[in-house]
C-alpha cells in the first residue's frame, strides 16, 4: 500500500504497510539516521521527531497516521557542515558521550524553543524529563539548551541592531 509522507520539507511516496512505525520508515526507507530505536515503547525519547511542530515518539506512530503531516527530524535542523542553532550549542558544549540519545534530545529541546523562546532552567528540565540518557550527559545537555537560548538572543540582538 502506498503512503505519502512529508519529511523535512520533501514528499516521499512509499510502498509500505501503514501500521509500520514511522521510526522504521525514517531509518530504513528514507535512510535517515537521526531517530533511533531505544525502546519502541514511548519511554525513552531516542526516536523523537516533530509531527506538525510537536515532539512525537516515532516508534509509536504508525506511518499511515502521518500521511500529509509535516515531519521534521534532526537532519532537518542542519548538517555537520551547516549545523542548526541547537546543534551548534551541543557541539560547543561537547554535549554527548555515546550520543545515542542526543538526536532525540535535540528534537525534544527544539520543540521547547519553538514554543518558548527564553525558557528558564526549571522549564528546560521539566520539558526534557521525557527523554532518557544513560551516559549521564544531562548536565551538558542542559548547558547546551541554555547556550542555544543565549545564542539565539545574541543573533537576534545582532540582527536588531543591524540597519
Amino acid at each position: 500500500m502506498s503512503v505519502t509522507i512529508t519529511v523535512n520539507g520533501a514528499d516521499h511516496a512509499l510502498d509500505v504497510d501503514p501500521s509500520t512505525p514511522l521510526l522504521y520508515v525514517l531509518r530504513d526507507d528514507l535512510e535517515l539516521n537521526g531517530a533511533k530505536y531505544g525502546c519502541g515503547l514511548g519511554q525513552c525519547g531516542a526516536c523523537t521527531v516533530h509531527i506538525d511542530g510537536k515532539p512525537a515518539f516515532s516508534c509509536l506512530t504508525p506511518v499511515g497516521a502521518v500521511a500529509g503531516r509535516r515531519i521534521r527530524t534532526v537532519e532537518g535542523l542542519g548538517s555537520a557542515g551547516a549545523p542548526g542553532l541547537l546543534q551548534q550549542a551541543f557541539e560547543k558544549e561537547q554535549a554527548a558521550q555515546c550520543g545515542y540519545c542526543i538526536a532525540g534530545m535535540i528534537m525534544r529541546a527544539q520543540a521547547l524553543l519553538d514554543r518558548i523562546p527564553d525558557p528558564d532552567d526549571a522549564q528546560i528540565r521539566a520539558h526534557m524529563q521525557t527523554n532518557l540518557c544513560r551516559c549521564g550527559t544531562h548536565m551538558r545537555i542542559l548547558r547546551a539548551v541554555r547556550r542555544a537560548v543565549a545564542l539565539r538572543k545574541g543573533t537576534q540582538s545582532a540582527q536588531e541592531v543591524r540597519p
Binding site: L32, N33, G34, T73, V74, E75, L77, G78, S79, A80, P83, Q87, F90, E91, Q94, A96, G99, I102, A103, I106
Partner: peptide, 8 residues
C-alpha cells in the same frame, strides 16, 4: 560528535 548531532 558532529555526526552524532546531525544524523550522520
Amino acid at each position: 560528535i558532529p555526526a552524532k548531532l546531525t544524523g550522520g
